[in-house]
Amino acid sequence: MTSVISTSTRERIITVLRAEVSAVPQDVRDDTPLAQFGLNSMKQVDVLFGLEDEFEVQIDENDLKDNAFESVGTMTELVEGVCRG
């Protein structure tokens, strides 16, 4: 079950993501690989900056796992982890 915070975080992440990769559907599942919509390493950098702006956080290299941008679910874990400190 998704918490209210996660739902809000998820929606904000999708908004940032779709600004860079418009092919991502609004109702994308949390576990759908985002590479199939065209999210490549160059766009990941833009999404990273967008997430930092949206959530007013600094995401350090140490915060990033290899799969951080694999799906909406992994991006939500990243953002919530950084926001918790």
Rank of each mutant, 00 (worst) to 15 (best):
F55I: 02
E54S: 01
L34F: 07
V45N: 13
T76C: 06
Q58G: 13
S22N: 15
L17I: 11
E11N: 12
I5A: 15
E70Q: 13
Q58M: 11
L34I: 08
L48G: 02
V45K: 15
L34P: 04
R84S: 14
E77Q: 08
L64H: 08
N67Y: 08
R10C: 04
T76Y: 08
G85A: 11
E77S: 00
V72Y: 04
I5P: 14
I14Q: 03
L17S: 07
I13F: 02
D27I: 09
L39Y: 06
S41E: 12
L39P: 01
R29T: 03
V21A: 00
N40M: 03
V47G: 07
T9Q: 09
L51R: 01
G38M: 08
D60P: 05
N40Q: 07
L34A: 09
Q26M: 13
D53E: 15
E70C: 03
D46I: 04
G73E: 01
D66Y: 14
S41Q: 11
E20P: 00
R12G: 03
V4R: 14
T76L: 00
S71P: 02
E52R: 01
K65Q: 15
L39Q: 01
V45C: 13
F49T: 13
R18F: 05
Q26S: 14
E77M: 01
D53R: 14
Q44M: 03
L17A: 07
A19W: 14
E77H: 06
L78P: 07
S6Y: 12
T74N: 03
F49L: 14
R10D: 03
Q44K: 05
R18Q: 05
S22V: 10
R84Q: 14
R10E: 01
R12T: 09
D53C: 12
P33I: 00
